[in-house]
């Protein structure tokens, strides 16, 4: 860990100004990933701006009928919030599938979006990694890539520069729910649909997301429809708890009169960002929910997926997980 100075932010604007003034500065909220990476000498900020005391700690209803999660609400407080468990149980379930109770008590919703990959090579400064040191190469492609990406790995030049995955569970549910990220920055406020917040690696894998330098996440807006009746978050991993996903699926269905009106499927553990295919989801509408149509969508979603050896199993695993998650969502008894 390198040396850094520390200051508590006194206000949102002040925090953004302070952050913009120093290129090597970083915001710190829960700290669960940033300090981890600093101890590994992967993240090397020279100045930390502690934003924990900013007024971004509440969950409030918004005009659209949705819910606004303050960026500094902890993952635990979000998962157990009555509005979330009742209206967005998918989100609650996804959050509780991640990390540990201790980490969820520390980690914030904004911070969850900023989590960096768990790629072994990214974490180990003794090995080349394009995400950590652009241009140094990707060790995972020819290395131990069991936990790595199978989708969205090719850059426009048809080369692969990085096969890291985004590790969040929460973001997979947020992607399915079509949440919107609210940010503020030197150039003012803006909103970013969650689906566009995280990037594919392309030839610039060092960039995880579309945030501009100095921008601060202030909130995550959930749309009015939280799919409370038919949802499932299915996470497959190497042990029963406290492990990152090999593959996860957030499935949400709106089923009326035995027909699917709306369907959302987001995958975790398979790509550099939560993976969605709205075009394929749309093929489910007006269909009766059953294994055959789910299998069709699952196969289609994994079309073009490519394994790199150790992770090739994820292609079949993801297909099966999609089908199971959609079946679980279908059969979940509404109103708990």
């Amino acid at each position: 860990m390198n040396s850094f100075t520390y200051a508590r932010a006194s206000g949102i604007t002040q925090a953004v100004v302070e952050r913009s003034a120093k290129t090597d500065a970083a915001f710190i909220a829960g700290g669960t990933n940033l300090l981890d990476l600093m101890k590994e000498n992967v993240a090397r900020p020279t100045h930390l701006i502690d934003i924990n005391h900013l007024p971004l700690t509440t969950i409030t209803s918004i005009e659209s009928g949705g819910l606004r999660l303050g960026a500094l609400v902890t993952n635990a407080d979000t998962a157990y919030h009555q509005q979330v468990t009742q209206r967005y149980p998918l989100l609650s379930q996804a959050i509780l599938a991640g990390a540990s109770a201790q980490l969820r008590n520390m980690a914030t919703d904004g911070g969850n979006l900023m989590q960096r990959t768990r790629c072994y090579y990214f974490y180990d400064t003794a090995t080349p990694c394009n995400k950590r040191e652009p241009g140094s190469g990707c060790s995972a492609i020819t290395g131990f890539n069991r936990i790595h990406a199978i989708l969205g790995t090719y850059a426009q030049d048809q080369q692969v520069y990085c096969i890291a995955t985004h590790p969040s569970d929460m973001c997979v549910a947020l992607a399915a729910l079509e949440a919107v990220v609210r940010v503020t920055g030197p150039d003012g406020d803006r909103t970013i649909p969650l689906a566009e917040f995280h990037r594919l690696p392309g030839d610039t894998p060092h960039l995880d997301n579309v945030l501009q330098d100095g921008e601060l996440i202030t909130a995550i807006d959930l749309p009015a429809d939280g799919f409370p009746d038919h949802y499932a978050y299915l996470k497959l991993r190497d042990r029963s708890s406290y492990a990152f996903a090999l593959v996860s699926v957030a499935a949400a269905l709106d089923i009326q009169d035995g027909q699917i009106k709306d369907a959302r499927i987001a995958l975790g553990g398979v790509a550099h960002r939560p993976w969605r295919r709205p075009d394929l989801e749309a093929t489910l509408t007006e269909k009766a929910p059953n294994k055959t149509v789910f299998q069709y969508v699952a196969d289609a979603m994994l079309e073009g997926a490519q394994g790199f050896g150790h992770n090739t199993f994820k292609i079949e695993l993801a297909k099966r997980a999609i089908v199971r998650a959609l079946l679980q969502a279908t059969n979940r008894p509404s109103a708990v």
């Binding site: 003794a126 090995t127 131990f144």
Partner: peptide, 12 residues
């Protein structure tokens, strides 16, 4: 798990 490219255990 060792990555034999490097002779290094990667899941350390």
């Amino acid at each position: 798990v060792m990555d034999h490219q490097f002779g290094r255990i990667m899941n350390h």
